[in-house]
Simulated scan of single mutants.
Amino acid sequence: MAKSTRAPWERSNPRKRAGKSSKHLSPAQKSAAKARAHRAGRRYPNLVDNMRMAAKKKSSKKKSSKKTSKSKASKAKSTTSAKKTRKRNAKKAKSRKHRASAREKDPRGGLTAAGRKAFARKQGAHLRPGVTKPESEMTPQEMRRKGSWAVRFYGRAKLPPLVDGKGQPTRHALSAHAWGEPVPKTVAAARRIAAKGERLLARYRRAKVRA
């Protein structure tokens, strides 16, 4: 569309042609327009200085809009970055926890020395390694410890699962290895360990009476 060569004051108000109400300058803009006219040696009010002030108003609005958009984009970017950082840190923490857990658990069953130390730190309990000696070499206290463990783990009325969905022994079943017993995969095998525990406790009680 070709621009009109007529001066603005010779053209009709485009807002009126569009059926829109005219926009008015604020008192501050009028003062600025008046000062501008005075510096240029023009009489005021005049259309030139008013148009200049109106154009500045539009320009400042655009700049403000751009700043707001940039601010929003920056804020969104910052939020996304913070979320990513939190997610990354959570993943690292989970990985560290998993590695620590792997170090603390003996894959063959029971806890490692590091695991017993960690348990002592968290629970305040002093755990000792399981008794793996033959029955003939056990002291009365060792009989009591192993017997108590066997009855507690495998003598309960309802046993936890001894094998998982893949047929592999669970941690509960693997604990038998830490005490020098065959890892039970059936309830009957678990009950045999419990029965052995009962015998050890009976021997401990007899030894205690004799002492």
Rank of each mutant, 00 (worst) to 15 (best):
A188H: 07
K61T: 11
D106F: 02
A102H: 07
H38Y: 05
T170S: 04
K133G: 06
K97S: 14
K91M: 07
S78K: 13
E137P: 00
R96N: 13
T186W: 09
N46G: 05
G147H: 00
A90P: 01
N50R: 12
W9D: 13
K84S: 13
S81T: 10
R6M: 13
R15T: 06
A2T: 03
P182Y: 05
W179V: 05
L174H: 05
W149G: 01
A118K: 04
P140F: 03
S4M: 07
E142Y: 04
V151M: 10
T85Q: 11
S175P: 00
K72D: 12
A18F: 01
R121Q: 11
K34M: 14
E135C: 01
K208I: 09
R36F: 07
K105V: 10
R52F: 07
K91C: 02
A157Y: 06
K58Y: 10
T139Q: 03
G165P: 03
L111C: 08
H126W: 05
V131Y: 00
L47I: 11
A2D: 06
K3P: 00
G147I: 02
K83L: 14
K30L: 15
T79E: 15
M51W: 06
G155I: 07
K75I: 08
K117Y: 06
V209S: 15
A114C: 01
R206F: 09
A76R: 10
K105M: 10
R42S: 10
K208E: 15
A28M: 06
A93T: 09
G110K: 02
T85W: 07
P129C: 02
R121T: 10
K66Y: 11
R43L: 12
I193W: 00
F119T: 04
R86H: 12
G124R: 02
R86I: 09
Q29V: 04
P182M: 06
A207I: 05
Y44C: 06
V48P: 00
A7I: 06
A100K: 08
P45I: 09
S31E: 14
R52L: 12
S12Y: 08
R116V: 00
A100L: 12
A82Q: 11
A188C: 04
T186N: 10
Y154T: 04
K58S: 12
A90V: 04
S175L: 14
A54S: 12
A40Y: 06
G109Q: 01
Y44W: 11
D49R: 01
A33Q: 01
P161L: 08
K16I: 10
T79F: 13
R203Q: 15
T132P: 03
K75W: 09
K75N: 11
A194L: 04
K84W: 01
K158F: 09
Y204D: 07
A202Y: 10
S95K: 11
K97P: 00
R203T: 04
R116W: 01
N50W: 04
P169A: 11
L200F: 02
R6G: 08
R103C: 07
H38P: 00
T5I: 09
A173N: 02
